[in-house]
Amino acid sequence: MKRETFRKSLGVRHVACGSCNGCEHEMNALSNAFYDITQDGYDIVASPRHADIVTVTGPMTPAMRAAARETLDAVPRPRIVVAIGDCAAGEGPWSGAPSAGPGAGIELQATITVRGCPPTPEEIRAALKSLPLSS
């Protein structure tokens, strides 16, 4: 993967895997006038086909497992999975609950993890900007 390939045109697709919606509030905030990550070259996209980055939240639930996999499989390669929040990192409040999995980021093998409950929009943006985009 070459950095030039993706510069200023990274599509971000989000998949909530049993989160509490707190992380989604902060992901959505990235598009408001205060953070506006389009200025950094990121675009929240509606289809996994348009995505380069997949953000995942939540501990992963049995009900979301297949849909999350299918969404990820629909993303063209190369792609990067980013785990957002303590739940996705496998160390959130519901870790160990009867229908909570190991963390969406653990299960879907995230490249990087943004800790926090939820992480702030600044923290998410900084993490996206730090992604290892060249190999």
């Binding site: 909530a16 049993g18 989160s19 509490c20 707190g22 939540g58 501990p59 639930t61 009900a63 979301m64 849909a67 959130g92 409040p93 519901w94 160990g96 609950a97 009867p98 229908s99 909570a100 409950c117």
Partner: peptide, 25 residues
């Protein structure tokens, strides 16, 4: 129910005060 984590069962057996941060989440 895609976000069903089993939160009610999970807090059973915890101290009620100790469970407050979980209830908040």
């Amino acid at each position: 129910s895609y976000a069903h984590r089993g939160v009610e069962r999970h807090v059973e057996g915890l101290g009620a005060l100790q469970a407050a941060p979980l209830v908040a989440r």
